[in-house]
Lab assay of single mutants.
Amino acid sequence: MQRGKVKWFNNEKGYGFIEVEGGSDVFVHFTAIQGEGFKTLEEGQEVSFEIVQGNRGPQAANVVKL
Rank of each mutant, 00 (worst) to 15 (best):
T31Y: 02
Q59D: 02
V20P: 14
P58L: 11
G4Y: 01
A61F: 07
K65E: 10
S24T: 13
Q53V: 13
F49E: 00
E12F: 13
L66H: 03
F49V: 06
E42G: 13
Q34T: 12
K7T: 08
V28K: 00
Q2R: 12
G4M: 00
K39S: 07
A61M: 14
I33Y: 01
R56P: 07
G4W: 00
N11H: 10
G57I: 03
G23V: 11
F38H: 04
V26S: 03
L66M: 11
I33R: 02
F27D: 02
F9A: 02
V52L: 09
E19Y: 06
E42C: 11
S48D: 13
T31G: 06
G37P: 05
N55A: 09
F17V: 04
V6C: 07
S48I: 10
V47G: 01
F9M: 03
F9Q: 00
Q59E: 05
E50R: 13
A60Y: 00
G22L: 11
G35T: 06
E21M: 08
Q53F: 09
E42Y: 09
R56K: 13
P58W: 11
E43I: 10
D25M: 04
K39W: 03
V6R: 00
N11P: 14
V28R: 00
Y15Q: 03
E19F: 08
K5H: 13
F30V: 08
E21V: 14
P58H: 04
V47L: 02
R56W: 03
S48L: 09
D25E: 06
Q45H: 09
E21K: 11
D25L: 04
I51H: 11
G4D: 00
K65D: 11
E46M: 13
V20G: 13
E21C: 10
A60P: 01
P58F: 08
A32E: 07
A60C: 05
S48H: 10
E19W: 12
Q59G: 03
F30A: 09
F27G: 03
E50D: 14
G22I: 10
E46C: 08
A60Q: 01
G54L: 05
G35K: 05
G37C: 08
E46Y: 06
S48M: 15
E46F: 10
N62D: 15
V63Y: 01
G16R: 00
E46A: 11
E19T: 10
E12A: 15
R56F: 04
F30M: 04
Q53M: 14
F17I: 05
H29R: 02
G44Q: 09
L66Y: 08
Q53I: 11
A61Y: 14
V20W: 15
E46Q: 12
F9N: 00
F38M: 06
D25H: 05
G44W: 05
Q34L: 11
M1V: 09
A60I: 01
Q45E: 12
E19I: 11
L66R: 11
M1D: 06
E50N: 15
A32I: 01
M1F: 10
V52R: 13
G16E: 00
G37H: 09
Q59P: 01
V64G: 09
V28L: 05
Y15H: 06
F49D: 00
I33G: 02
N55C: 06
Q53P: 06
Y15E: 03
Q2A: 12
G54D: 07
Y15G: 02
L66S: 11
A60M: 01
V28N: 00
N11C: 08
F49Q: 00
E43A: 14
E42N: 11
D25T: 07
Q59R: 15
G35A: 12
K65N: 08
K65G: 14
P58C: 06
F27I: 03
V26G: 01
G35Y: 07
E36W: 11
G44E: 08
Q2P: 03
K5I: 09
I33Q: 02
M1T: 10
D25F: 03
E19D: 13
L41T: 02
D25W: 03
S24I: 09
E43W: 08
E46K: 12
K7S: 09
M1P: 06
G54M: 03
S24P: 14
A32D: 05
P58I: 08
E12Y: 14
Q59H: 11
P58Y: 07
I18V: 12
V28F: 07
I33F: 05
K65R: 13
A60W: 00
F30Y: 14
G35L: 05
E12R: 15
G23A: 15
E46L: 14
K65T: 12
Q53R: 13
E43K: 15
V6G: 02
A61H: 12
H29D: 03
G23P: 12
M1R: 06
I18Q: 00
G57Y: 05
V64C: 15
E36S: 12
H29A: 01
G4V: 00
R3T: 10
E43M: 14
A61T: 07
K65F: 06
E19S: 14
G35C: 14
F27M: 04
F38W: 15
A60T: 01
N62Q: 15
G23S: 14
S24F: 10
F27L: 03
I33A: 02
Q34P: 07
K39N: 06
T40H: 07
Q2L: 13
G37W: 04
E19H: 14
E43T: 15
F17L: 04
V63P: 01
G4R: 01
E50Q: 13
S24Q: 12
K7Q: 07
E46D: 04
Q53H: 08
N55F: 15
E12H: 14
N10W: 05
V26Y: 07
E19R: 13
E36Q: 14
G57Q: 05
G14V: 01
K65V: 11
K13P: 04
K39Q: 07
I51A: 09
G54C: 11
G14W: 00
Q45C: 10
G23H: 08
V64R: 12
G22C: 14
T40N: 06
N11S: 09
Q2W: 13
R56Y: 04
G35E: 13
E19A: 15
F49C: 11
G44M: 09
P58K: 09
F38P: 08
A60H: 01
A32L: 02
S24E: 14
F49M: 13
G37V: 06
R3W: 05
F9G: 00
K13W: 06
K7Y: 02
K7A: 13
F27W: 05
E50H: 07
F9Y: 05
Q2K: 15
L41G: 02
I33P: 02
F9W: 06
P58M: 13
F17E: 04
G22F: 11
V20I: 11
K39D: 04
V26F: 05
E12D: 11
E50A: 07
E36H: 08
I18E: 00
N11I: 07
T31I: 02
R3A: 10
D25V: 04
Q2D: 09
L66T: 10
F38A: 05
F27Y: 13
E46S: 14
G22Y: 07
V64S: 11
